[in-house]
């Protein structure tokens, strides 16, 4: 069990460091602009851009969930025994995690095995696919639900959203810099700016995916901590290997239990752009805990 807590801290610290790095990139860029061009207006514009993006943090759970076709579980649906089981597991693991907030349950009608969770302050929601309810037994389902509860207690959707916003800020900088490129007196410094913006943007994208993968591993570790049963999660992951592709917006992909867009993508280069560690790696990692 001690390795569980060391692994937990390791993942937490690494993903936090990357996130702070990204936010630093987004914040120092306007000052680089000021140094290279003396353009105060441009600097203010870029800083305003960053502020606007940060404000968009307050988007709602409903929008994200409806974008992936999730619907709220109604009282009528609760008669179904598997849905009942899902709701029971949510309550059980809430106690295990000592989470006091409300969790609204959602259902996604899709045959693949998947789940997702979003939390904002003390409001949270967890969605499960009908495929997961059909194909997973109680034990396996408990592993998946524990993984989602772990995302909630770790505030992972906030972490991922902050990272996503940092990418958006740097992307907007890049676009702006590339547009003003031609019509300035200091052409040399503008090209330098463009290169810096490009590097920052590329870095932030890689960092976003790195954070997403770290947070997935962290949630796997925490799921074992909550259930005290690593085989629950391992068996569920093994069944997921047979998943088919699920159509969801790319921005929502990192919020899922397993990547819904590319269930079996696995080459070294694409590895850098993965939202989740490969299933095989996740299973091996859990077995070592």
């Amino acid at each position: 069990m001690s390795s569980l807590f060391t692994e937990r801290r390791k993942n937490l610290i690494k993903s936090d460091l990357i996130l702070y790095g990204m936010i630093t990139l987004a914040l120092i860029f306007p000052f680089i602009v000021l140094n290279l061009t003396d353009n105060i207006l441009l600097t203010l514009f870029l800083a305003g851009m960053a502020a606007l993006y940060l404000l968009s943090l307050n988007n709602s759970i409903d929008i994200t969930f409806s974008s992936v076709g999730a619907e709220k579980i109604t009282n009528k649906m609760k008669k179904n025994i598997k849905i009942r089981q899902f709701l029971n597991l949510l309550e059980e693991l809430k106690i295990a995690a000592n989470y006091k907030g409300e969790i609204t349950p959602y259902l996604i009608k899709h045959d693949s095995i998947n789940a997702m969770a979003i939390s904002r302050k003390n409001k949270a929601a967890v969605a499960i696919t009908t495929g997961a309810l059909k194909k997973l037994n109680r034990e396996e389902l408990s592993g998946v639900v524990a993984h989602e509860i772990a995302h909630i207690i770790n505030a992972d959707s906030d972490v991922k959203l902050s990272a996503f916003i940092a990418v958006g800020v740097l992307g907007t900088y890049l676009e702006y810099i590339s547009r003003i490129g031609g019509n300035s007196r200091k052409k040399g410094s503008n090209i330098l700016l463009l290169i810096i913006a490009l590097i920052f943007y590329a870095l932030s994208i890689l960092m976003f995916f790195a954070i997403s993968r770290r947070r997935e591993t962290l949630a796997d570790v925490d799921a074992v901590r909550l259930t005290r049963n690593k085989y629950a999660l391992i068996k569920a992951l093994e069944k997921i290997a047979e998943n088919e592709k699920m159509e969801v917006p790319e921005s929502a992909a990192s919020l899922f239990f397993a990547n819904p867009l590319s269930p079996q993508l696995s080459t070294a280069f694409f590895g850098l752009f993965r939202t989740h560690p490969p299933l095989k790696e996740r299973i091996e990692y859990l077995k070592r805990l």
């Binding site: 089981q85 059980e92 037994n137 109680r138 034990e139 408990s142 259930t227 005290r228 049963n229 629950a232």
Partner: peptide, 9 residues
């Protein structure tokens, strides 16, 4: 009772 029960369905 240390580990939660595992009941297969």
């Amino acid at each position: 009772a240390k580990a939660p029960p595992k009941i297969e369905f």
